Computed example of a mutant assay.
Amino acid sequence: MTQIGYARVSSSGQCTRVQLEALEAAGCEIVREEKASGTSTQKRPELQSIMDFIRQGDTLVVTRIDRLARSISDLQDIMKTLKSKGASLRATEQPIDTTSAAGKAFVDMLGVFAEFETNLRKERQMEGIAKAKVAGVYKGRKPSVDADAIKRLTEEGMGASDIAKRMGIGRSSVYRALR
């Protein structure tokens, strides 16, 4: 029976030190950490490594559920995988222990709140963008492709593949600029 710790922060500017200390104090023999968004389990190789490695009797330990997943569906997928492997989940800062019925119910409730928080954040972001657009402040991302140069090279008789190579862009970007 191994306790495997998992620490996650969303961006490279954040630090996992506090989580790592808590996981080590909780007796985790193996600790994995990564800096990636929690809105999806995709592009989280350390979490995937744990899910592949974890065995019967092992416990996945996190400081809080939102460090593991920010959507109820991802959390439920993780829980199904743990259950199928005979492993459990525990959080150091929340009364979660999936070996009990109350612990399982509490995990689901926390997952719902984590997803709710993510959705509220997205709504606020979209409201801010809408206000900025009305004020003329938000203009979107600057174009990364020089459409005039592409048109000029096309008029000179150069093909899409050659233009893409010369400009260091994808051929589809050439076609988009020509539309």
Results as ranks from 00 to 15, higher is better:
Phe113Ile: 11
Ala102Met: 13
Ala7Gln: 04
Gln125His: 09
Ile150Gln: 14
Gly170Glu: 08
Val145His: 04
Glu93Ala: 15
Met1Tyr: 04
Leu110Ile: 02
Lys83Trp: 03
Asp148Arg: 09
Ile72Ser: 01
Pro45Leu: 02
Lys131Cys: 03
Ala26His: 00
Ser12Glu: 05
Lys35Cys: 06
Val145Tyr: 00
Ser173His: 01
Gly57Ser: 09
Ser40Ile: 06
Val9Tyr: 01
Leu60Glu: 01
Ser71Tyr: 02
Leu75Gly: 08
Arg55Trp: 00
Val145Met: 05
Leu89Glu: 06
Ala25Glu: 10
Glu33Gln: 14
Thr99Pro: 01
Val134Lys: 13
Gly159Gln: 08
Asp74Ala: 03
Leu60Pro: 08
Gly159Tyr: 12
Tyr175Lys: 08
Phe113Glu: 01
Thr154Glu: 09
Asp58Arg: 05
Arg17Val: 10
Glu34Pro: 10
Ser37Thr: 11
Ile50Asn: 12
Ser40His: 08
Arg44Pro: 10
Ala114Cys: 05
Pro45Tyr: 12
Lys139Thr: 08
Ser71Trp: 00
Asp148Ser: 14
Ser37Asn: 04
Thr16Gly: 10
Asp148Lys: 11
Glu117Phe: 09
Met79Asn: 00
Cys15Gln: 13
Glu29Asn: 08
Gln76Ser: 11
Gly136Gln: 07
Ile163Gly: 14
Ala147Arg: 06
Gly86Met: 00
Gly57Thr: 00
Arg32Phe: 12
Gly168Ala: 09
Asp97Pro: 01
Lys142Trp: 06
Gly57Phe: 14
Ala130His: 11
Leu20Ser: 04
Thr2Asp: 05
Phe116Thr: 07
Ala177Leu: 04
Asp162Val: 05
Glu155Thr: 02
Lys35Arg: 15
Phe116Val: 03
Ala26Cys: 06
Val174Met: 12
Lys83Tyr: 10
Asp148Leu: 15
Glu127Ala: 13
Gly140Val: 06
Ala132Val: 09
Gly27Tyr: 06
Glu24Thr: 03
Leu23Ser: 14
Val31Pro: 04
Ala105Leu: 14
Met109Tyr: 10
Val134Ile: 09
Arg124Thr: 15
Asn119Ala: 14
Thr41Lys: 12
Leu178Cys: 14
Arg70Asp: 11
Ile78Val: 15
Glu156Gln: 15
